[in-house]
Design a protein around this nucleic acid. Structure first.
Lengths: 108, 108
DNA sequence: CAATTGTTGGGAAACATTGCAACTTTAGGG
DNA sequence: CCCTAAAGTTGCAATGTTTCCCAACAATTG
């Protein structure tokens, strides 16, 4: 196993880690509609703004969203909408597998 | 936020969590080639077989792989190859964003 | 200056990862 | 049949990481 390959898998894992929390997926879905500032998102999702800020910072650190300061606000916007298709695909995959397993279990 | 939507996001997050470790991505890549048993994979990746077993169990629990007993061996096989395209897409996304940010940084 | 918006840090609780040891199951030799 | 070896899984303890809340801080507006 060469180091370059390992590094690539670490990179992929980092992005999946950023997506591995329901709140972060919800935040991304909101950002698909339009840009939002932190306090709007925190209120919408029902969490502390410090928590929202940290989740958004994680998403930003892997390059999925970008921020822009406007006075005292920080507006976040979606940069890589393709990941949301990935998220929908993830749901499809997991549901399909679940159905298959149930089907097999029923058939046995 | 209705509960059903939240549940869907939790489901997606679960699948991403299963993908959020470089060793698990590597295991999936190996399983794309052909079915492998646990001890082969452990040797190939260079980890304890108990660790390999646990990682594989996680991947199985979200329905990405399936197992089949053959004597004393347990052979794992890939069930949802589409997630590997997702993994490659993840890498593409993150690299593209990184390039963009570097480009902007250089231009400023 | 006061109010609003975000970010950052500490501490606690929950969760994830690893290595080791114990255990189960199967195959095969005597 | 009994014993041993090999393959996997599971439990435990140690360590590291995530997540949350709260409080403190920085920055901007009016």
């Amino acid at each position: 196993m060469d180091d370059r390959t390992l590094r690539r898998y670490e990179l992929r894992a980092e992005l999946f880690k950023a997506l591995a929390h329901p709140i972060r997926i919800l935040l991304l879905e909101k950002l698909r509609e339009r840009p939002w500032c932190v306090c709007e998102l925190a209120a919408e999702v029902g969490i502390e703004k410090s928590v929202a800020s940290k989740h958004l910072s994680q998403l930003k650190s892997v390059g999925l969203i970008a921020d822009e300061k406007r006075g005292t606000l920080v507006e976040y916007q979606l940069v890589a909408p393709c990941v949301l298709d990935m998220a929908a695909c993830a749901e499809g995959t997991i549901l399909e597998q679940r159905r298959k397993r149930l089907g097999i279990a029923a058939a046995e």
